[in-house]
Amino acid sequence: MSSTVYERVSTILVENFGVEADKISADATFEDLDLDSLDLVEFSLAAEEELGVRIEDEEAEALGTLGDAVKLLEDKGATPGEG
């Protein structure tokens, strides 16, 4: 189950932010992926639209790694997609 939220988040990063797929891993920080604070704002919007879960600004700022983001989304009730 967790891998699916992870996959959907990875897809957002590749498709919307041009992150190279091989750079993506659970311990990658947003800095490693070259996402700055403006990108994080957009990432939380995209995640909200794709996964139906809202990330508050404060939470987005506190995110260290991609794994943290996936965990936060899951804790908030994001479920694997239909597709």
């Binding site: 403006l38 704002v41 957009e42 995209a46």
Partner: peptide, 10 residues
């Protein structure tokens, strides 16, 4: 700038 895409979403 880069915020344009965000504004479009919002």
């Amino acid at each position: 700038g880069r915020g344009l895409r965000i504004t479009e979403r919002i």
